[in-house]
Amino acid sequence: MIDVFTFLFTICMLSIVVNLGISLYGVLYKPSLIKKIISLTIFSDSANITAIIIGYVRWRNPGEIAPPVLLNPNPTLEDIEEFAKVAVDPLPQALVLTAIVIGLAVTLFLVFLTLQIYRFYGTTDVRRIAKLKG
């Protein structure tokens, strides 16, 4: 018998996974470049949420979970130990920070490329952007 919390959390996880799948479909099989880029951002954001969620810590009682920021300017050794007990995992957050910037950079370049392609081809339909073949 699982508790309500685990049940709800599993639903959250699964919906993220389904989101990943749907955006993968959009990325791979949608013909419009703009829609492809939108799907790509959804895909990378879902990936980022996956990363955040695995760094999360189970909520037990009020006050037992905190962001990974030490608020006490002059902590004692016990304060630091306590902080390490209640704070969530900071590493996935740092990884996601990196991944967000990278995703932003790549999307930015793709948008510029799409703009330029539209100027030359007059379309954003990938089925018609096919000069290179064979």
Binding site: L33, K36, L40, F43, S44, L110, T114, I117, F120
Partner: peptide
């Protein structure tokens, strides 16, 4: 432009998969 877009687009997808 066309070659770069095709490469960049699928490249962006696969690197995100590697992140996962």
């Amino acid at each position: 432009l066309e070659a770069a877009f095709k490469y960049a687009f699928i490249g962006a997808l696969v690197t995100t998969l590697y992140f996962i």
